[in-house]
Design a protein around this nucleic acid. Structure first.
Lengths: 231, 231
DNA sequence: TCTCCATTTCAACAACTGTTGAATAGTGTG
DNA sequence: CACACTATTCAACAGTTGTTGAAATGGAGA
């Protein structure tokens, strides 16, 4: 039995009836490969394999891997910022603790399925090209401004300590939620002695309670029992 | 003018009088390359170039890149755990706030120069091989146990809230310091509107104050003014 | 019909990679 | 002296990579 003749494999058609690959599918594939292998460790061919297309197509749609990474940011971060802007409207008269909790729900909605990607983002923040750092900073700034505004309003309304630095406080609130989304799934048994999703929920609550005690006026103002059911 | 004849380059000597490269130097080089490029993106040849040796030497000393990564953990994390074990001794009668602050000083001492490496560690926690995850978990567990013990002792001494989960609380305390070490240098102007080192110090203090308010009994028990000078 | 355009694939090239076995160079021991 | 051992380099191989230009394919419009 002779082995299959490689020259006999059917040639894929090109042009309009070729396998259609839109850029969203390419970006999804890139995200998966970046998450598994880092940006440098993610080869164009691995991304193409993941997307089920020819590597040259990536060059047709994007200039480089970095351009793909930036496109992923451009796809992901503006909707997050929009959701935050909604909460941060000055006309929003919801209680401050509720607004802060809703911030965390926004981050959870937009990031909870991006486990490996966040390590990649951090790597780029710390060791990436200036272009990447600048783009990340720009996007994060837009989201962060909303968080600062909510905290400032909380201070003005007398709900939060007047000595708080809104930028730092926003950083603490958000970064800890991101840590929780990243690490608790991997380490749930060790951190909480509870399994999976239960661990995540319990840790989020414990964090928000600690945070609230740390920032609230008067000290230890109570959080209502149904807060944590708000999605 | 003819170009230099590549065959005429001097051959490097081998054997005992060859350029001496000990494994510490290899690991330093690996850490730098891992930090810049991730583990997958770090080629053996790049590490060898960074170390100034032949790539085959890496195979002489280590089985693989992963083995190098694990050796880096083995080098770095036990001294950290040892320092924490010293603070966590049950006979240590220092005030609880001081012991918690000292925890942060230990992490600062051992990790403050490893900026890119922490993203690599996180990537391995989330997406690494089972071997890497297990090794990381083992090391982190040893350190984390000290943190839990200190928090438990704080609860027993009536300094900390009795409803705190020591594991979660330890996680919050430490992870936020790690976030601060990683991200504040990169984003100091945006987070604090202060430059570099000043931003780091100010953010650490703000975090510890918030944390302390969140965990202390009675609420808002005061931290002494000279705490933050403790290194 | 022909031309243009958009999209996708093919093919190829130079460079890089991981890895291996052999060679080299000393030292110590019997 | 010969041999064994250690540490380092050289050379080579097969495989993978990034990237590019050309080719193929269909649809739309003149």
């Amino acid at each position: 039995m002779k082995p299959p003749n490689p020259k006999a494999s059917p040639r894929k058609t090109r042009g309009p009836k070729a396998q259609k690959v839109d850029t969203a599918l390419l970006l999804d594939a890139a995200q998966r490969v970046f998450s598994a292998s880092g940006i440098k460790g993610a080869s164009i061919r691995a991304i193409a394999r993941e997307a089920g297309c020819d590597p040259a197509l990536i060059y047709y749609h994007f200039e480089s891997k970095e351009a793909m990474f930036l496109a992923l940011l451009d796809r992901k971060l503006p909707p997050l910022a929009q959701d935050l802007e909604f909460i941060a409207e000055a006309s929003n008269l919801e209680p401050t603790y509720l607004r802060l909790w809703k911030i965390s729900r926004v981050y959870r909605r937009h990031f909870s399925r991006d486990t490996g990607f966040r390590a990649v983002l951090r790597g780029q923040i710390v060791s990436g090209t200036e272009g990447a750092k600048e783009a990340i900073a720009r996007h994060i700034q837009r989201a962060a401004r909303c968080n600062w505004a909510i905290i400032e309003q909380g201070i003005q309304r007398g709900d939060l300590r007047p000595d708080l630095n809104p930028r730092m406080t926003g950083f603490f609130l958000v970064r800890m939620f991101m840590e929780i989304f990243d690490l608790v799934p991997a380490f749930s048994e060790r951190i909480t002695q509870m399994p999976g999703e239960q661990a995540l929920v319990a840790t989020e609550r414990a964090w928000f309670e600690l945070f609230w005690r740390g920032v609230a006026v008067p000290p230890v103002s109570a959080l209502p029992a149904d807060l944590f059911s708000v999605e």
